[in-house]
Design a binder for these strands. Sequence first.
DNA 1: CCGATTCTATACCGATCTGTATAGTCGCCC
DNA 2: GGGCGACTATACAGATCGGTATAGAATCGG
Lengths: 194, 194
Amino acid sequence: MGEAVAEIAWTPKARTILEAASRLFYAHGIAAVGVDLIAEEAGVTKKTLYDRFGSKERLVVEYLRHRDERWREFLDHRLAETPDTPEARLAAVFDASGSWMRDAGGKGCGMVNAHAEISDPAHPAHRVIVDQKAWMLGLFRRLCRDAGLTAPEETARTLMLLHEGALVAHGIGAFPGAVHHARDAALAVFARAR
Amino acid sequence: MGEAVAEIAWTPKARTILEAASRLFYAHGIAAVGVDLIAEEAGVTKKTLYDRFGSKERLVVEYLRHRDERWREFLDHRLAETPDTPEARLAAVFDASGSWMRDAGGKGCGMVNAHAEISDPAHPAHRVIVDQKAWMLGLFRRLCRDAGLTAPEETARTLMLLHEGALVAHGIGAFPGAVHHARDAALAVFARAR
DNA sequence: CCGATTCTATACCGATCTGTATAGTCGCCC
DNA sequence: GGGCGACTATACAGATCGGTATAGAATCGG
């Protein structure tokens, strides 16, 4: 049966290490950041890092898992305080991404960036990345179904493309206000599908 | 004044090296691929690699430049044999991306993936990446202007988002047929903007 | 046939990579 | 107050990193 994955002991320093690693991985890429730098930035010895996480690979997985978790919580919270109309909820998703990008520095989607460096499906981080995209598509799908669209899956996929495109365009600086533009485009697509 | 950039001597082996580097960089990421591996895959000594390219950084720049050049030629060629209606030309862009992804293995956009690893604007590869995206936006803009749209810039940006989103979704495997779906969505957006 | 260019072969450089070993300090809980 | 978990400090291992040095073989135009 499946091998039990070792639990992380979430001591205070473990969290500090993960925060430093998250910041560095996102800003400079995963392969470009060494464990020595992470330990130094976290104000911790390498021994502590390896006592907590065991390997760099595991630290990468926790980075992506945590980032995914924070994003879902952030989005859920935003949606919870949004009027329960399909249009408002759709707009809230894109607005949340806009805020997220504004706060987090905005180098685009961390999952997409990680996927550029980790293509091997056998890598444990691969599932985290793919799962997050499946979850986002599911979110759009639910939104379209709840609105009673005639072709919810089709529209959900189009919304997904606009959303992914917005994160990329923002990250690379293709044009200013990409996420907000995507929001308007998504609302237009949505209105026409009703 | 601007420092003259050293010319590459495009000897047969130089091309072989660039082909190997391109394949490896795209498949595994830039930082993950060492010059020793590139030389070995190209059937060449490291000395030859450095005689031709001088540094890994330069090889990376040439990788992106060449990829960009090949893409533009590929797309121009496709557009040249496309009926001169705005709809057909728009569809041809997405169809070209679909073919490109089908042939090249489909790990998404090489520029976006490179940008995940190279964020520093001072890096000489940064301009190549940003320029390619500006060129693509310009292509969509011209297409919208030629069609006499009332708001060509707005529509061009939406098309750009759908296109970028399609490459990401395809690369990450969000759902099957992402590029073809984007094509249909783009045509719908375009039709409505006329 | 000469000389320049392209390339092979191989060994090396210092730095950095992930990961481990050893020894010891601090604080907290039973 | 004794043991245990979390942590520091430091040194090291073996591999790999980008890049260089030296020497020589193959090719080719003048």
